[in-house]
Write a protein that binds this DNA or RNA. Structure first.
Lengths: 236, 236
DNA sequence: CCATGACCATACACACTGTCCGGATAGCGC
DNA sequence: GCGCTATCCGGACAGTGTGTATGGTCATGG
């Protein structure tokens, strides 16, 4: 069966074949594809087409599509570490800093929804991705632990509880809620709701109170519950 | 190429070829296989071998291996609904009931670790499984919402927060932590730690206090933190 | 002017899924 | 005992993926 030997010869003409240019193309293409497809339904062939790269080249730069995802995750997550900083170094009001961090996290997640959803869905099935993701979660946990340890008020409140376990819980609760938000699962698909509930949870657990400040923020009546539906992202 | 026409003829001899007997064999075999393999690395062929069933028969009873998982999940999750009952109908001390429910949940998860890990890892990639799991989580959420609504103390404390969102957060935090425990991710791989931290989180958020009772329970010094390692189940 | 390195097309070995078909066999009515 | 039918089996096949291997093309630079 004769394949069409059509126009696939207009590339080398481009400016610089700078060493790892194809590598970049692969990365970008994958990142974009992930915005509309799930990682596991994405075939290498799809990436090849989108990046206009040959199979051989792909496997020259990456050992597998999982490796590509790993790279993208590292990129995305680096920014995340920074979002948490304000709360970590604890120069501001903790609750305010926390809320700001949570909101920043939400922004970050929606900006990189494709990549982050992909890693969350895939770290269970690939050794390298698993190590990568667990390491990232550990970093957040470490930061939270440090912050908690440096706050006598929180320490007292926590009593004899396992500080690291508490910190890890908070980290993973965040991971899950952000993921659900990105996946369009109600009620987390609404950013405002997400931020409120996450912040409340963190402050309740650590500081034993809900943030009074939130009441002053302009937030329309919630009109909550009665929502058992299952709406999905991917339909936009 | 002559295949060995060997001993595959010792089954029909068995007692009753009662209608859906093969179906049962498939279910059990899969359940057992899931205790040592991940769902996505499990091929239909593996199930066929384990259940001593032909490919044709398999596809007669189930449209796909996902459907098998769905069935197993329904079985496992039904028990879960009951575990939550004591807290739901709220005749006992809420915190005590909560703690008991959380512990029961932990037991349930470790008893059905294979199946439950499988659904958690797979609901993102299959329409039916997704609907099934989201429905289950919604059921738990509904129950929590009802319980919260019927408790003026909690209601007051929650203020204008979105009740359903809070309930959903608690549900999903549980899902994630139980999963991590089953997956052997520290510090949740220790049941005691898991139960404590989950109960504390729920009570902190809902009742604004940690349970004083827990201090009286015999619980050895935690010797917490300094654990960033990544140990995996599947190695037992 | 040709060697080299970057890249491509193609095709292959292997694995898995889901479908289809020609039997084999056991129980059952007769 | 005899054929019927429901049930189940082995095996083959098409379709789709992945990862590897082979040989060819083209621009550049020595």
């Amino acid at each position: 069966m004769p394949a069409k030997p059509s126009a696939r010869t207009a590339r080398r003409s481009g400016a610089a074949p700078a060493s790892a240019e194809l590598r970049e193309r692969i990365l970008s293409a994958t990142r974009e594809l992930l915005q509309e497809s799930r990682f596991d339904t994405l075939s290498v062939a799809d990436i090849l087409t989108a990046a206009e790269v040959s199979r051989a080249s792909f496997y020259f730069y990456f050992p597998s599509k999982q490796a590509v995802l790993g790279e993208l995750v590292r990129e995305a997550v680096t920014q995340g570490q920074e979002a948490a900083q304000p709360w970590i170094d604890g120069r501001q009001d903790p609750v305010a800093a926390l809320r700001a961090g949570v909101r920043e996290g939400a922004r970050l997640w929606s900006a990189n929804a494709g990549v982050l959803m992909a890693i969350v869905e895939s770290w269970g099935s690939d050794e390298d991705l698993r190590a990568l993701w667990l390491e990232q979660m550990d970093l957040f946990t470490d930061a939270a632990v440090a912050r908690i340890r440096s706050d006598p008020h929180v320490l007292r409140r926590l009593g004899d509880a396992d500080v690291r376990a508490v910190a890890a819980s908070l980290t993973w609760m965040g991971e899950r809620l952000y993921y659900l938000a990105a996946a369009g699962v109600p009620p987390f698909d609404d950013e405002e709701t997400l931020v409120e509930v996450l912040t409340d949870a963190w402050t309740s657990i650590l500081y034993g109170r809900r943030d009074p400040a939130q009441l002053s923020e302009a937030r329309p009546t919630v009109g909550d519950d009665t929502g058992s539906a299952t709406r999905d992202r991917r339909s936009s």
